[in-house]
Design a binder for these strands. Structure first.
Length: 895
RNA sequence: GGGCGAUUAGCUCAGCUGGUUAGAGCGCGCGCCUCACAUGCGCGAGGUCGGGGGUUCGAGCCCCUCAUCGCCCA
């Protein structure tokens, strides 16, 4: 797979081939790359829906995970990134139902078994396509361990958990108000009913007092529910209504007498202070109804049409049509007191966006408080750490106010609830069982299994251990539980993240992970969340095709600081992804240059081997790039560890592009061309700093770094950068004087370039430069890199002598070195004087403000001495620069 | 209604513990096909750090307040 290196990097020719090579060699399995004694490191992939297609949100989430897992893998951990797919109850069922609808069928036409069979077919056909898509972006998950939440193994865990919780009294069945989706025809959990603000109305309705002495006014946002009203409630302390408590009102439209009750849950300040009570359609009303023994009248069908419990003329009407007609009846009866605009939050189904209907229904629940307590404690005692920190507040707030979890769904696709009801007359026993029951364990009579399935999240909340074989004691389970890092978008903290912590603590006795990294959301240039319905999405696969997977990953990572959203412009992919592609190309060419100029295995820079490069063989530039490389190792490693992936990307980018390519490679060229003394040292330094850079970058840009790394001479055919050791800081690289000295060289070259640009000197034309410095170290640095300066600044010579000419460009370096570039009498003296003067003025401003600062008694006495020291040093430096420039101005005869 | 976050160059964002001449990439202007790369090289312009007030020797950073945008919860 080693071909000659093209001048332009072509990702598509390389990526899939490399991926297959990695995968075939099993590099993504923890067993393959780390000894059994190594400490494990585990990330659980948020299992994508089995029918999902890769979108940018997946791209971001999985890129982050892949970066972290690759980082830890290279650091020698037994890294396991465990992938899987979620059967996604409602979502998947909806997809197949839509398919059926195209054939003019519903699931009821097929019947349960045939429908479920059809879903399985669908899943097998399209199933796990998303996992294949993840491979194209480089995801290094351990595919051999891939799970599916509805497979046999995980189903057993689900059933075990249900039974255990039931036996502990934490699973129960009961009649409560739940969120009902009239389109999906199922109950939802509180979390699955997403509150969205909508512009609605508040209708003030008059309910006549039964004795004909007047009326009570109630306010409602859902007038149609009045069909199920069974009381009016007021606050017990409300003087206005105290005398009415115990009497009755005549419910209009349905013409029913209902009592006026006193309940302290009523807010006397809301509306008139009297509220209608609909126990079957509102959770607060349900509670009031309980306390007062009120009847519950369910006035809606599952489809949210008016049921037979309402007067005939409304039966079968859609809830909104019923609302219009009821309001109209109130109006014509003179009972509509007022209508106000009212913006309020309304629950919407998180799968189909239909407005949910709070509805009384018999469902299965998990008692959450006992599970939440330890999960809260794990956060409070610091076991759990959120990144960014503040996300922990969302977590704890939710747990503090936790409500029981409705886990039954009226769907066909999912884990069937393991409960059997005895149909024998007089028995009626309910049996919860780990194994399927044929007969009632009590009486031996016929049993019927509960029709419902479990919430899809009831399987996902177990994956940190169910995917490893629980309830069996497998070696995977003991090795890889608990895991370490969970990477997620903030929108599934409650659905998934928090629940996994609860189940982990309850069933395993330990939290499933300790670090929770919550990244942002991918948005478009108008800061709207990317979504299918808005059509503002970017297809990651298209980006891979056009720019390469590395460019995609680089763009996502570098555009993302901790916890903030990533903005990408769907109308201009270049804006977002060209920088990544360009960086890959830069890297490619830097690598191409270095590799093409190696002649065999370079000498080692460190170690005991023969031929190791000695410290005295290194030039200033060598020591500088080695020191910069070492600093980059420290910066990048620290950034990866702290989840500051954009900082890691930035540090390596800067090192590769600015330090290595722009300066070191340019500097080193003469030593690489031909057989020049010191060429072997230059090759050693270039190759090894580049090798380090590749390894530092590999977690973010795995493909190109592997492609280049493998081409180093002497590399084992089987070696992969993905399991190469992570670079470690080297104390011997520490060379502050090299950083300073080469910094001056850079500054001098830049200053000369500025003068050349200022006066439009043609690139081909060499000029002479004079420098004069009081500082022997500066002079030594310039002398040792004289050839570099001459070449990079296109000089005919660099002179340390006095100069006689007047006409030319002048400058002063930061530490006071004077620079002069003679340009002959043709130079515009006035222009040069102007340049110098504006520099002089800038320095005057700096010096003045600095003198003010240092003249301030308070500053000198109160600021830390090192700060004062530093500020004094600055003043000295600026004064020196000022002096040099003023002298130059005099010399030029500026007026 | 409660809570949280954001507001820094035309755009997207860094700036971590209060002390820098406020940075990067893109875009823009000028000059270059310099034998790794024009997906490139060199140089440059561009900022009253959302407004107001305060604390401090010192504020982009801390406090108060207002405004705008966004997110979560009720």
């Amino acid at each position: 797979m080693i071909e000659p290196l093209a001048p332009q990097y072509n990702p598509s020719s390389i990526e899939s081939e490399l991926y297959h090579w990695w995968n075939e060699r099993g590099l993504f399995s923890p067993e393959s790359h780390a000894p059994g004694s190594a400490e494990p490191y585990v990330i659980m992939m948020p299992p994508p829906n089995v029918t999902a297609m890769l979108h940018m949100g997946h791209g971001l989430n999985n890129t982050v995970q892949d970066v972290l897992i690759r980082f830890e893998r290279m650091r020698g951990r037994r890294a396991l990134w465990l992938p899987g797919t979620d059967h996604a109850g409602i979502a998947t069922q909806n997809v197949v139902e839509r398919e059926l609808a195209q054939e003019g069928l519903t699931r009821f036409d097929l019947g349960r078994d045939a429908f479920v069979e059809r879903v399985w077919q669908h899943v097998h056909q399209t199933g796990a396509a998303i996992l294949e898509q993840l491979k194209t972006i480089g995801a290094s998950a351990d595919w051999a361990r891939t799970y599916f939440t509805l497979e046999e193994r995980l189903s057993r865990s689900v059933r075990e958990v249900f039974v255990r919780l039931y036996e502990e009294g934490l699973v129960y069945r009961g009649h409560y108000i739940i969120n009902w989706c009239p389109r999906c025809l199922t109950a939802l959990s509180n979390e699955e009913a997403e509150k969205e603000d909508v512009d609605g109305k508040l209708w003030h309705l008059r309910y006549p007092l039964a004795d004909g002495t007047g009326y009570l006014t109630v306010a409602t946002t859902r007038p149609e529910t009045m069909l199920g009203d069974t009381a009016v409630a007021v606050h017990p302390d409300d003087e206005r209504y105290r005398r009415l408590v115990g009497s009755k009102v005549r419910l209009p439209v349905v013409d029913r007498l209902i009592p006026i009750v006193a309940d302290s849950a009523v807010d006397p300040a809301f509306g008139s202070g009297a509220v209608k009570v609909t126990p079957a359609h509102d959770p607060a009303d349900f509670e009031i109804g309980r306390r007062h023994g009120l009847a519950s009248i369910d006035i809606m069908t599952p489809e949210a049409r008016i049921s037979l419990a309402a007067p005939e003329r409304f039966q079968g009407l859609d809830r909104y049509e019923a609302r219009r007609r009821i309001v109209a009846e109130f109006e014509s009866a003179g009972l509509l007191e007022a209508v106000e605009d009212h913006r309020h939050a309304v629950g919407h189904c998180y799968r189909c966006d239909t407005v949910v209907e709070p509805r009384l229904s018999e469902q299965w629940f998990v008692r959450m408080e006992p599970l939440a307590r330890p999960a809260l404690e794990a956060y409070r005692n610091g076991t759990l750490q959120f990144v960014p920190d503040r996300r922990g507040d969302d977590y704890s707030t939710w747990l503090e106010g936790i409500r029981d979890w409705c886990i039954s769904r009226q769907l066909w696709w999912g884990h069937r609830i393991p409960v059997w009801y005895c149909e024998a007359p007089g028995c009626g026993r309910t049996s919860v069982s780990r194994t399927d029951l044929e007969v009632c364990p009590g009486c031996g009579g016929a049993v019927r299994q509960d029709d419902d399935v479990l919430d899809t999240w009831f399987s996902s909340w177990l994956v940190p251990f169910s995917s490893l074989g629980w309830p069996d004691s497998t070696s995977d389970l003991s090795t890889f539980y608990p895991g370490h890092t969970l990477v997620s978008a903030p929108d599934i903290i409650f659905f998934w993240v928090a629940r996994m912590i609860m189940s982990g603590l309850h069933f395993m006795g330990e939290v499933p992970y300790t670090r929770i990294y919550l990244h942002g959301v991918v948005r478009d240039n108008l800061h709207r969340k990317m979504s299918k319905s808005l059509g503002n999405g970017i297809d990651p696969l298209e980006v891979v095709e056009r720019y390469g997977a590395d460019a995609l990953r680089y763009s996502l990572v570098s555009g993302m600081s901790v916890g903030t959203d990533v903005i990408l412009d769907p109308n201009n992919l270049d804006t977002s992804f060209a920088p990544g592609r360009n960086f890959a190309n830069k890297l490619w060419n830097a690598g191409r240059f270095i590799l093409l100029n190696l002649d065999g295995v370079p000498r080692p820079l460190a170690g005991q081997q023969a031929g190791v490069v000695g410290p005295d063989e290194l030039t200033l530039a060598d020591r500088w790039i080695i020191a910069r490389c070492d600093a980059t190792v420290r910066e990048a490693t620290d950034a990866y560890q702290r989840f500051r992936l954009n900082d890691a990307a930035g540090a390596v980018y800067h090192f590769i592009w600015s330090d290595l390519a722009d300066w070191y490679i340019e500097q080193v060229k003469p030593r690489l061309y031909g057989d020049v003394p010191g060429g072997d040292v230059a090759r050693a330094v270039a190759a090894q700093t580049f090798d380090v850079a590749l390894r530092l970058l590999h977690p973010i840009m795995p493909f190109i770094t592997e492609a280049l790394w493998r081409r180093f001479p002497g590399r084992d055919e089987e070696a992969s950068i993905s399991v190469a050791p992570w670079p470690t800081p080297d104390p011997r690289a520490h060379a502050p004087e090299a950083l300073t000295s080469f910094g001056l060289v850079q500054e001098l070259v830049s200053a000369i370039r500025v003068i050349r640009a200022e006066y439009g000197i043609q690139p081909g034309q060499a000029v002479l430069a004079f420098v004069s410095s009081e500082n022997p170290k500066t002079v030594a640095a310039f002398q040792s890199e004289r050839a570099t300066i001459v070449r990079l600044a296109k000089l005919s010579d660099l002179s340390f002598d006095e100069h006689r000419e007047r006409g030319g460009g002048h400058a002063v370096l930061s530490e006071g070195t004077a620079l002069f570039v003679p340009l002959g009498d043709a130079i515009d003296l006035r222009r040069e004087c102007g340049r110098l003067s504006s520099e002089v003025e800038r320095l005057i401003r700096l010096v003045e403000s600095q003198e003010r600062k240092l003249g301030n008694e308070q500053f000198v006495s109160r600021a830390p001495s090192d700060v004062v020291q530093r500020e004094r040093q600055k003043l000295t430096t600026w004064k020196e620069q000022y002096d040099v420039l003023v002298k130059k101005r005099e010399l030029l005869g500026c007026s």
